[in-house]
Amino acid sequence: MSNAYLDLLAYFGIGGAHPGGFNLTQTILEDENIQLSESVLDVGCGTGQTSAFLAKRFNCQVTAIDKHPIMIEKAVERFKNNPASVKVVEGDAECLNFEDDSFDFIIAESVIVFTDIEKTLHELARVMKSNGRIILLEMTAEKNLSKELQRTVCNLYGIKEILSEEEWRVKLQQAGFTRIEIIDTPSELSPSEVDDINQSDNIKKELFDLLEEHNELITHYRHFIGYRAFKCYF
């Protein structure tokens, strides 16, 4: 089923649309000691901005996967004339077409909340090596949200639920992760600076309206809706 907000990101071709933006991604990844020999999976890769950084910075083999065909098209375009070792794959995070224990390092930036959370977390745990690690940046409820606000947020983003930090921890533990760390980042949502755009032609007015709704929600409810960066191991 189509998700209008994900269509928005795809047709606008926005890189680094996740909370904290690409600057946060770079800051977090600079602390990772990713080796040349390690296999990396970028889940919900979008247009491939993070995958490009990983391949260039660490010279490692990156597999970039996304479900949205427009995102895949733009990711392939990004790497067309780029020697970076990135393999772009169209696929579903809830049912990954990879063998067990395939990846040393996995990153997912504002992806899992748009899926069946339990299914996706179990899939990520399945394809991660026993000595691997995963970093997740995900929307988080900062306070007890009214039913009206929950409904507003879920309808806007096409998601089923907004988890608190503790609820994320529980689901991560249920998926098999035994060590869960919170990476120190600003927790409030705020509009990210976007300087990586590959916009499609003839974007529908409805998507411009949705973008305005998104910006208004962040402005008015940033004390209620935030995000966390989790780093998880077995």
Rank of each mutant, 00 (worst) to 15 (best):
residue 1 M to C: 15
residue 7 D to G: 06
residue 12 F to P: 01
residue 14 I to Q: 02
residue 14 I to N: 02
residue 15 G to Q: 01
residue 16 G to T: 01
residue 17 A to R: 02
residue 19 P to W: 10
residue 21 G to C: 00
residue 21 G to V: 00
residue 22 F to E: 04
residue 22 F to D: 02
residue 23 N to S: 13
residue 25 T to E: 05
residue 28 I to P: 08
residue 30 E to M: 10
residue 31 D to A: 12
residue 31 D to G: 15
residue 33 N to M: 07
residue 34 I to A: 01
residue 37 S to D: 13
residue 38 E to T: 06
residue 43 V to S: 05
residue 44 G to V: 09
residue 45 C to G: 00
residue 46 G to H: 01
residue 47 T to K: 01
residue 49 Q to N: 02
residue 50 T to H: 01
residue 52 A to I: 04
residue 53 F to T: 06
residue 54 L to P: 05
residue 55 A to Q: 06
residue 58 F to G: 04
residue 60 C to I: 14
residue 67 K to V: 15
residue 68 H to R: 04
residue 70 I to R: 03
residue 73 E to N: 06
residue 73 E to C: 03
residue 75 A to Q: 02
residue 80 K to M: 02
residue 83 P to T: 01
residue 88 V to N: 04
residue 92 D to C: 08
residue 94 E to V: 01
residue 96 L to R: 00
residue 100 D to I: 05
residue 100 D to E: 09
residue 102 S to K: 04
residue 105 F to N: 05
residue 108 A to G: 08
residue 109 E to L: 11
residue 110 S to K: 13
residue 110 S to V: 09
residue 112 I to R: 04
residue 114 F to H: 07
residue 116 D to T: 03
residue 118 E to V: 10
residue 122 H to G: 06
residue 124 L to I: 07
residue 124 L to N: 03
residue 127 V to R: 03
residue 127 V to H: 05
residue 127 V to Q: 02
residue 128 M to G: 04
residue 130 S to M: 13
residue 130 S to P: 12
residue 132 G to M: 06
residue 134 I to D: 02
residue 134 I to C: 14
residue 136 L to M: 10
residue 138 E to R: 08
residue 138 E to L: 11
residue 139 M to Y: 09
residue 141 A to D: 12
residue 146 S to W: 00
residue 147 K to T: 08
residue 150 Q to P: 07
residue 151 R to G: 08
residue 152 T to A: 13
residue 155 N to D: 13
residue 156 L to I: 04
residue 158 G to K: 14
residue 159 I to R: 10
residue 160 K to F: 10
residue 161 E to G: 05
residue 163 L to E: 09
residue 163 L to V: 10
residue 164 S to V: 14
residue 165 E to S: 15
residue 166 E to Y: 15
residue 167 E to P: 14
residue 171 K to T: 00
residue 174 Q to F: 00
residue 175 A to F: 08
residue 179 R to T: 13
residue 183 I to M: 13
residue 183 I to T: 14
residue 189 L to A: 11
residue 189 L to I: 13
residue 190 S to Q: 11
residue 194 V to A: 07
residue 196 D to E: 03
residue 197 I to T: 05
residue 199 Q to C: 11
residue 201 D to P: 06
residue 209 D to C: 05
residue 210 L to T: 00
residue 212 E to A: 09
residue 212 E to L: 02
residue 213 E to T: 01
residue 214 H to G: 07
residue 216 E to L: 06
residue 220 H to N: 15
residue 224 F to V: 09
residue 224 F to I: 13
residue 225 I to F: 09
residue 228 R to I: 14
residue 230 F to E: 05
residue 232 C to E: 02
residue 234 F to Y: 12
